[in-house]
Design a protein around this nucleic acid. Structure first.
Lengths: 188, 188
DNA sequence: ACTTGCATGTAAGTCGTTACATGATTGT
DNA sequence: ACAATCATGTAACGACTTACATGCAAGT
């Protein structure tokens, strides 16, 4: 899966590992993120498998390794994309904690859920900000500017959909935990 | 986290690794599951750390290793439980696939989402069945029977809540993907 | 002068899975 | 007889993360 996202990001233009990391943070960040310490070795492996091609350049005194996707890489990515979509495994520490909540005092239970709620609200605000930024840069703007912006962030309608999904997902979480907090006292 | 769930399940009585695996499948299964191949080594490590105590018994010709939690294990579990709840990382392959949907034909997009929807419906039905089973065994039943049942499955109100959460979570997914499918043709 | 960001890389460790291997008991 | 379930274990591998290590460039 690590490989896939690297290949995917190379589809619309060559990039360095560092660039991809930055792109991931502002786009797939909330549902898929990976560290630089795993991106670089991953690229080395992909190069050995002839999935990507590397060009070393010197830009402003800095050495950069720019990767582009090969035909083989494209085919590999495509076959992944065409596969059936697996139901996500939710490995959720929060749910696990609540599963064992019988062993926690009611006061601490409420405190932890409240603080959790605050952080999900923060997450929602972050996503809302990204969304507003997109809208601002794609609505009522000269076409050229919009295209530049979309190219820079590799934006497309489906990626926007994913942002919307994130927003609704965290809203769902927020709603559920809020009502859970309310019910808390009545739960035994 | 692997360790934590093992310790947590030992809180209400000693168990074998195999038993815990079975319990996991019917209770935490949809949000946290782990393989036998990692449970056994995990127990060995926990024993070395004096978090659990092992008693080897022979029951019906079979050798079993029954584990019980120690004081040290209890403390370790408790300190985990009392910690702040982290926002879950959703590492979702489904979302990643949709993120790259621009590279898939509209026909395949629809097909994949439809099949995905069918499987989430299956998941919902599974959870509904478990839920009905609980209700059947805890409502209008002699008290003794209910207690036995709850003890067997380590049932408590919070664990029931987690089942309800799962149901609502998958319903949310279902709803979102359904509307996504409908919108599909209008998305570029 | 100093901090932040750009840019890459390695080593150690964690955490987990799948596949393989064994063997007994229980139900059909 | 045969399949399913109970019961344990190991080996190989995979996929990461964190911490460490280096160094230049740009802005304040």
């Amino acid at each position: 899966m690590q490989d896939i996202i690297l290949l995917g990001f190379l589809l619309n233009g060559e990039k360095t590992g560092y660039q991809i990391k930055k792109l991931m943070e502002i786009s797939t960040g909330y549902f898929f993120n990976t560290s630089l310490g795993s991106i670089y070795p991953a690229f080395n492996k992909l190069e050995k498998k002839n999935m990507v091609r590397m060009t070393q350049i010197i830009s402003g005194g800095r050495t950069k390794k720019i990767y582009s996707i090969t035909q083989k890489g494209r085919e590999y990515f495509q076959s992944w994309l065409e596969e059936d979509i697996n139901i996500p495994k939710i490995r959720d520490e929060a749910l696990l904690k609540i599963f064992f909540f019988q062993n926690l005092s009611n006061d601490l239970r409420k405190e932890r859920i409240s603080s959790f709620l605050n952080r999900t609200k923060g997450r929602i605000k972050e996503l809302e900000m990204t969304f507003r930024l997109i809208k601002k840069n794609t609505q009522n703007q000269p076409k050229k500017h919009v295209e530049e912006y979309q190219k820079k962030y590799n934006l497309d309608p489906f990626r926007e959909e994913m942002l919307k999904f994130g927003l609704e997902y965290y809203s769902f979480l927020n709603k559920w935990y809020k009502s859970f907090l309310k019910r808390m006292d009545t739960i035994r």
